[in-house]
Amino acid sequence: MLTARAGLPRRLLAELIGTALLVTSVVGSGIMAARLSPDDVGLQLLQNSTATVLALTVLILVFGPVSGAHFNPVVTAVDWWLHRGGSLGGVAAYAAAQTVGAVAGALLANAMFGVPAAVSGRVREGANLWLGETVATAGLVLLIFALVRTGRAALAAPAVGAYIGAAYWFTSSTSFANPAVTIGRTFTDTFAGIAPASVAPFIAAQVIGAFIGAGLVVALYPAPVSQPVAASDLR
């Protein structure tokens, strides 16, 4: 994911807005799906995943040239580790902007659909779900940085959208694969929500998945085919 060398404030704004709109699409489409298909959970998931795929693809196209369109702390952290593209302070700033954006996005979706602001009571726990999050995150990291290291970053928007859409269905956890989004989704007691008690294990699984994905990137693509601009250029 190539990025213009925009100033850090502008990149943080892009990450905040992009992550907010991503979570709005996840939560909002989940609410709409539950209302349109109240008795068919499979159809709800299809509606929710389709909206997320389309929204994520568009958001990467819009915000990618500004910030790299990470919208995800583990993507930012792995990008820094692989490319040494800036300071740890910049990584932390990206993660903070992404998390604030995710919370704002959930609250915006609640407001648009007239859902009372509430902490989610939807418990998501179990080793099978944590394994699903590990697999989903590892695959996401491998995909993104395989594209970057082989000079095909322009394909990130459709490829990442397609992967997340597929992972909704082939992982037991429905592929959160994102610590900021996981935190944001605690602020909606709807179809897409997650209870606060379920957050820490999900994030732990995502971090493990990020390490696995990064290791696979280094093993499979030890050096870039052509040196890209570091997506997190956080200096």
Rank of each mutant, 00 (worst) to 15 (best):
P201Q: 01
G89S: 13
G89I: 10
R35L: 14
A104S: 09
P158R: 13
A177Y: 03
P158D: 13
L155P: 10
S175Q: 03
A93C: 06
F176D: 01
V91A: 08
Q47T: 08
Y94N: 11
R5E: 05
V91Y: 06
A55T: 04
L155A: 15
L129G: 05
G64N: 06
A153T: 00
L22Q: 05
V23E: 05
V207E: 02
L43K: 15
V26M: 12
T52Q: 07
A223M: 14
R11N: 10
R185W: 00
R124S: 08
A214R: 12
I164K: 07
P179C: 03
Q206E: 11
V91G: 01
A97I: 09
G165M: 07
A136L: 05
T3C: 11
G213T: 03
S87L: 09
G68W: 01
R124G: 01
T134H: 01
T52D: 00
T171P: 04
S87E: 12
W80L: 14
A55S: 14
Q98E: 14
S198A: 11
D233R: 13
Q47V: 12
N128T: 14
G213Q: 02
A214C: 15
T188A: 14
S29Y: 07
W130Y: 12
I60R: 02
A14N: 09
L45W: 11
A92M: 10
L2G: 15
S120F: 02
A117P: 01
G161H: 07
A219L: 15
F113M: 11
R84T: 04
V123N: 02
W169V: 08
A153L: 02
V218F: 07
V27Q: 01
V26H: 06
R35G: 15
A33R: 01
P228N: 11
L16S: 03
P158M: 13
T76R: 03
A4I: 04
G139I: 04
S87V: 13
A95E: 05
I194G: 01
F113Y: 15
A177C: 08
I183R: 00
A96E: 00
V100G: 14
V141E: 04
T188E: 06
D189N: 15
A55E: 06
G139L: 12
N128K: 06
T50M: 10
P201D: 00
M1E: 08
L46D: 02
S49W: 01
G165S: 08
P196A: 11
G30E: 00
A166Y: 02
T190I: 07
I31K: 02
L234V: 11
Y94P: 10
D39K: 04
Q206C: 03
D79R: 03
S87M: 11
G85K: 04
L220E: 10
R235Q: 13
G213R: 01
G165W: 03
A111E: 14
V135R: 02
Y163N: 09
V181G: 00
P116S: 11
F211R: 04
A69K: 09
G151V: 12
A14W: 07
L45Q: 11
F113W: 15
S49L: 04
T137N: 07
G28Y: 04
Q227C: 07
M112R: 13
